[in-house]
């Protein structure tokens, strides 16, 4: 498979997703003495074309690597970033691609990608319990890190009413941390 430059990769996503690709950013950074490049691409896609963008990785790399899904509470919305990585077999050619999806809190649903990358199961389970989204079609719906007696409807990484504020306890002599 031919190695595309970051610009070409963004191009290919543009042609594959069309309007689904909201924005893109290429990060290149020279490091150490030889000034080789550390490369990363940030893509922002609509929830509707998210699955298509994951499928598109397969045309760039057999078995794209998924590091993790990071999530943050933006207030009215939840932002998920899927951190993929391609060209990992080649020296200094690996490119991290962050695919950003913003979901409204009224309908926090995203399709599963375990059918394309089975290794995504753990991180999907974690994202589901920690930030309170629904992964549609996830093969294993159980909690991952939270114990079974953790209250339902509380999501530790949320910063609104469903956050863990009520659960915080402090040792005697310490204040409850405020934000």
């Amino acid at each position: 498979m031919e190695i595309l430059s970051p610009e070409k990769i963004v191009e290919s996503f543009k042609s594959a997703l069309g309007d689904g690709l909201l924005s893109s950013r290429i990060h290149q950074q020279e490091v150490a003495i030889t000034r080789n490049l550390f490369q990363a691409i940030w893509l922002s896609v609509t929830p509707g074309s998210f699955k298509k963008s994951v499928a598109h990785f397969s045309s760039l790399q057999d078995y794209p690597h998924l590091a993790v899904v990071s999530s943050s509470d933006l207030g009215e919305e939840i932002e998920l970033i899927y951190h993929f990585s391609i060209y990992y077999e080649y020296q200094f050619k690996e490119i991290s691609v962050g695919v950003r999806v913003v979901l409204p809190k009224s309908k926090p649903e995203i399709p599963t990608i375990t059918d394309i990358i089975p290794g995504a199961l753990f991180t999907e389970r974690e994202t589901q319990e920690m930030i309170g989204i629904k992964v549609i079609g996830i093969p294993d719906d159980r909690r991952l890190f939270l114990s079974d007696d953790f209250p339902i409807g509380v999501y530790p990484w949320r910063k609104d009413d469903t956050g863990p504020q009520d659960l915080l306890k402090t040792l005697p002599g310490q204040k409850v941390p405020g934000r």
Partner: peptide, 10 residues
């Protein structure tokens, strides 16, 4: 091998 980061880039 994949990423050029820190002194590993050299």
């Amino acid at each position: 091998q994949g990423h050029a980061y820190s002194a590993y880039a050299d």
